[in-house]
Structure formats: structure tokens, C-alpha cells
């Protein structure tokens, strides 16, 4: 097999699927444990040494599993990567990390059983200011640097996806607003609309990039 045929070579699909499923389930379980523990500790207001030890152990276990999955992940051959693609990928990982931290902060701020992202209840001003700083300063800044680093193909599919997402918004928001005025559905929730638009944008973008 020549190097030119590598992209048609073995993909180790089954092995990748097994690693992804097992590691994914374990990490999700541990994230649930981490979330529950943190929430309980914040509610109690005090953290003992044992609590701290359990918390650190859980975080280390998540990191260990993620590292193990990464090491076990089969690759046909080391794949070179262009500097711009590497920069774009690293920035994307960075933004995802920020999103995860913001999501965790949101989740921990809500009442038990409440979906914080879709809540319209009051929120701690310090937490709100921190999240707004991330959302209005850091994320746009990193997004701009990312946009300057992506290649033309990525830029094209990103713009195509944004057009699809914009059309979803054009049709969804007024329809919901009208249906709500007619009394058929509850009042429009901007965060649900925003989440649907972002989900469609992301799904179409990933589909066009990898399919």
C-alpha cells in the first residue's frame, strides 16, 4: 500500500467504536459523580479533606481514562498536519474547554432538577459577570483568531452552515412567536431557539467537514 492510498486503508472502525463507547460511558459516569459531589459540597458549604481527596481522585480518573483512550486510539500511520490546521484544531479544543467550564458553572448554579441553561430564574451576579466575560470577550476573541487561521474549505463550509442556521432561525422564531400568540404553544424561549440554531449550525458544519 502506498502512502497515497493511506486514506483508503484500514480505519479500525470496530476498535475505535469500542474504545469510544467504553471510555465515553466511564467519563460520563465520572462526570456525573464529579457534578454530584461538587453540588453536594457547595450545598453543604464546607469541604473536608476526604471530600477534597475524592474530588481530586475523580478528576484524575477522568484525565487517566481520557489519556488511556487517546493512547489506545488506533491510527494507520502518523498523519502530518499543516500548521494552520493544527492551530485551528487547538483553538477549537480551547473554545470547547471554555464551553465545558462555562457549562459546569451554569449547571452548578441551578437548583436541583433545574436545567440551568433554560432557566429564567435569578442568577448570582458574580457568576453572571464571569460567564459574560467568557462569552463576550474570550470566546469572540478566540473565534476571531480561529477564523483567521482556518483554510478556505473550512471557511466555506462554516459559512454554508451559518446560512442554513440563519434560515432555521428565520423560520423557527416567527413561527413559534405566532403559534404562541395563537395559544398553541408556550411563550418563546430565546435560549431554546439559540440552542436549536447552534445545534443545526454545528451538525451541518461537522457533516460537511467529515462526511
Amino acid at each position: 500500500m502506498t502512502k497515497a492510498d493511506l486514506e483508503n486503508g484500514p480505519t479500525y472502525g470496530v476498535r475505535k467504536a469500542i474504545i469510544a463507547i467504553i471510555a465515553g460511558i466511564m467519563i460520563l459516569f465520572l462526570l456525573g459523580v464529579l457534578f454530584g459531589l461538587t453540588k453536594a459540597m457547595l450545598d453543604n458549604g464546607a469541604m473536608s479533606g476526604i471530600d477534597f481527596g475524592i474530588l481530586i481522585s475523580t478528576i484524575l480518573a477522568i484525565v487517566f481514562i481520557a489519556f488511556g483512550a487517546w493512547k489506545l486510539w488506533p491510527i494507520a500511520a502518523p498523519e502530518p498536519i499543516a500548521p494552520s490546521a493544527k492551530k485551528s484544531r487547538n483553538l477549537m479544543i480551547f473554545v470547547t474547554g471554555i464551553g465545558f467550564v462555562m457549562g459546569m458553572a451554569f449547571a452548578l448554579s441551578g437548583e436541583p432538577g433545574d436545567i440551568a441553561l433554560f432557566s429564567n430564574g435569578p442568577i448570582n451576579p458574580t457568576l453572571a459577570a464571569s460567564i459574560l466575560f467568557g462569552w463576550l470577550i474570550i470566546v469572540p476573541l478566540v473565534s476571531w483568531v480561529w477564523w483567521k487561521s482556518v483554510d478556505e474549505h473550512e471557511a466555506a463550509i462554516y459559512l454554508q452552515s451559518s446560512a442554513v442556521a440563519a434560515h432555521v432561525y428565520f423560520f423557527l422564531a416567527p413561527s413559534w412567536w405566532l403559534a404562541s400568540r395563537a395559544g398553541w404553544v408556550p411563550a418563546q424561549d430565546p435560549m431554546i431557539v439559540c440552542s436549536i440554531v447552534i445545534a443545526v449550525w454545528s451538525a451541518f458544519w461537522l457533516y460537511r467537514k467529515y462526511a
Binding site: 502512502k3 497515497a4 493511506l6 498536519i81 499543516a82 483554510d151
Partner: peptide
Amino acid sequence: RAERNWSQAELAVHLDVSRQAVNAI
């Protein structure tokens, strides 16, 4: 690409684009 025995990833490095971009072209 095949004449030069390059993979898509190697051509992508020459062009400073992603492998997915080469595949799409």
C-alpha cells in the same frame, strides 16, 4: 498525488490546509 506517493495529509501540509480540504477538492 499518487505519482509523488503523497498521502492526502502530506499534500495538505504542502498547501497549508486541512486533510479534509484536500479530500473535498
